[in-house]
Design a binder for these strands. Structure first.
Lengths: 107, 107
DNA sequence: ACAACATTTGGTTATTATGGCAAACGTTCT
DNA sequence: AGAACGTTTGCCATAATAACCAAATGTTGT
């Protein structure tokens, strides 16, 4: 891995890392249905306002979501919707794992 | 987010997390060309043998790669190749970020 | 049985991520 | 100006990750 290659893979890994948290992943998927304000998420996620806010800013820094301030509220929206396309594949991995676990169980 | 939902998103996040490291991501992509033994990776990645081995075992535990012991060597292969399909999208995110950074620069 | 080799495991340390709380900030309303 | 609201920021404790080294494991060849 050359120096440039390393930077490139670091950058790609950072995008994936932003999605590698259950709360962030869940929020990203919710945003596929349309924008939401922070307060809406706080109601649904069992976590502090500040925690939710920080998670959203991680997604923002990764370039996955947009934020827009309107009045007192801040609305987040999905900037690059394709990040959700690959959930099918992620679920396929889970499915394979499940099958394998079941197979090992039977012995 | 209900309890079951939380488990589900945790599981999906774990798969992504396994790929969220430059070395692991790079190795996963290399495996798209065919299986490789640990020693081959050690030569190419500038890291300790044990470090490479651990990274591969993270990918293995996530269900992304398979391992097969043949003689003294252990060969890893891509178990669920679709995990690489979404790199196009990840690169799209990076491209958007780059454009935005350039735009902010100009002011 | 022993040496050489490929890999994994365990221990240690440094770094980073997470989540809650309290304080700060900016906007709206009175 | 001041109160109320939504959000972010700073700080802290805790937990998870990453990398290296050394030791352990399993396999092959002598």
């Amino acid at each position: 891995m050359t120096g440039k290659e390393k930077d490139f893979y670091q950058a790609k890994a950072n995008v994936l890392k932003a999605l590698s948290h259950p709360t962030r992943l869940w929020m990203a998927e919710k945003l596929a249905d349309g924008e939401r304000c922070v307060c809406e998420f706080v109601e649904e996620v069992d976590a502090d306002f500040s925690t939710v806010s920080k998670h959203l800013s991680v997604l923002k820094n990764a370039g996955i979501v947009n934020m827009e301030k309107r009045g007192k509220q801040v609305f987040y929206s999905l900037k690059v919707p394709c990040v959700l396309q690959f959930m099918n594949c992620v679920e396929e991995v889970l499915h394979e794992n499940y099958k394998e676990a079941a197979r090992l169980q039977k012995r």
